[in-house]
């Protein structure tokens, strides 16, 4: 594994833009600058791609998880709220 050594300020300058870039919220001009930089910087391309993949993985893994309330937790919640008679 290579260690990412920043020899110039460019990579650093673009770091603060990466979240907006992967979210598609970066303005067109900055987007072009970043993509131009990435075209000549393999390290930054890897960082951007793995950053996006990281966010995707969390999103996928958590959306697959159940969002329901366990039945026992639900019963105790409704009881505490005095809503037992309205529990579905």
């Amino acid at each position: 594994m290579a260690e990412h050594v920043h020899n110039h300020e460019n990579c650093k300058k673009y770091l603060s833009l990466l979240s907006d870039y992967i979210d598609g919220n970066l303005n067109e001009e900055m987007c072009e600058h970043l993509e131009e930089h990435m075209a000549g910087c393999d390290d930054c391309t890897i960082v951007v791609n793995t950053l996006k993949r990281t966010v995707d993985l969390y999103h996928t893994s958590t959306t697959e998880e159940s969002q329901g309330l366990p039945e026992d937790v639900k019963s105790r919640l409704y009881k505490r709220l005095s809503l037992d008679d309205l529990k579905k």
Binding site: M1, A2, H4, K12, L15, D43, I46, V47, T50
Partner: peptide
């Protein structure tokens, strides 16, 4: 300052 990335490995 935001910490610079150190792990550069393409696992995508």
């Amino acid at each position: 300052e935001i910490e610079e990335p150190r792990e550069i490995v393409d696992w995508c």
